Amino acid sequence: MLKKIKNYILLAALGSLLCNPVAADQTVEDFQVWGGVFSQGNFGFVNPNNPDLKKFRWWMEGQGRFGNDATQFTQSLIRPGIGYALTDKVVAWVGYAWAPTAEPLTLKTGHPFDEQRIWQQVTWADNFSFGRLSTRSRFEQRFFDNDAPLRGGDDVAHRFRQLVKLAVPMPAVDPNLSFIVQSELFIAMNTVDNPGFISRGYDQNRAFVGLGYKVNQYATVEVGYMNQFINRPHSARPDQMMHNFIASLFLNF
């Protein structure tokens, strides 16, 4: 079984390298620590006798991220949303996000800024013989509170994100333990020069490998490593390669 675990890790590391380009001389690297709580549930508690209420879902998450070798606050995220279950596997969502941001993620001015987002997404998940496969397709409209002059771009940044996640059970080690591998691709849909130049096209990729442990029927903990590459074409700042330690608590009610 230890040999199988090593093989999983080697395959995930190779996938991370394939998803994200190797850091070049002009790429700035950083170590970060991310923590988050992600919760969701349905509105069946309002009236247990009404099965239609269970199709309506709620979403709430909070994250804290610390960069510059995990020595300072970099970003936080508060993201509420509501959804509707189209089937037992597919849910459509809409919501809001607030993202205060500081170095090393600030772009042109170097000063902290607040970002407001409106988001829409569709999630899908299903169980297979090899594990649980899930996807999330998200569109974001991003608004910045920075007063830097525009350079011909739009006021609102539109971005598409596609996440694919696989959780492989490890019953020989522990029936509640899973091996996790996932990748999320970000595509900027337009060019924006506020608060820093965002160029249309490939924006970033996040490749994660780690372990998940089901604490009980409601809670799962995941920890692992994320390789995050941020592409900055035509920007005054170099590309960024983040090496992130991730600890997440998932609550499902």
Rank of each mutant, 00 (worst) to 15 (best):
D155V: 13
V221K: 02
N194M: 12
K54T: 09
K4V: 05
Y8P: 03
Q120D: 11
W98N: 11
M226K: 13
L10K: 06
Q116V: 02
D174M: 04
F139Q: 09
N127P: 05
K3Q: 10
F160V: 07
S178F: 09
I230P: 06
K3H: 10
Q40D: 09
F245D: 01
P195L: 08
K108W: 10
P100S: 03
D155L: 14
W93R: 13
K108F: 08
G41V: 02
S248L: 12
D155I: 05
A247P: 05
T101C: 00
N20M: 02
A172C: 04
I187S: 08
E140S: 06
T27D: 03
H243M: 00
F66K: 04
P21I: 06
M242C: 10
G15L: 14
I198W: 02
R206I: 04
G64Q: 11
M170Q: 15
M170E: 11
R161Y: 07
C19F: 15
I187P: 03
V91C: 03
P80N: 06
P171M: 08
P238Y: 02
F130Y: 05
R65I: 08
L14R: 04
V223I: 12
F186T: 00
Q204D: 05
N244R: 14
G153P: 09
W98R: 10
F56Y: 15
A157V: 07
V209H: 08
A125K: 13
P112H: 14
Y84D: 00
D114I: 04
N227S: 15
R200C: 03
L166F: 11
L77M: 14
R237C: 03
F38A: 02
N216T: 12
S199K: 15
G196W: 00
P169D: 04
A102C: 04
L163H: 06
V33P: 05
S199G: 03
K165L: 15
L53D: 00
S39V: 08
F130P: 01
K108Q: 10
I230F: 11
D30M: 01
S199Y: 09
A23L: 00
L17I: 13
F43Q: 08
P51M: 01
Y96W: 15
A23M: 01
F139T: 11
Q217P: 09
S39F: 05
L18N: 02
N127K: 15
F139P: 03
G110W: 00
E115H: 03
Q162T: 06
Q26W: 01
M60R: 11
T27A: 00
L86A: 07
Q240G: 01
T87Q: 10
D126H: 14
I180G: 01
S129A: 15
G81D: 07
P169L: 08
F45W: 15
N216M: 11
D126Q: 14
D239M: 01
Q72I: 06
D52F: 05
Q240V: 10
F143I: 12
F250E: 04
L2W: 10
V209R: 08
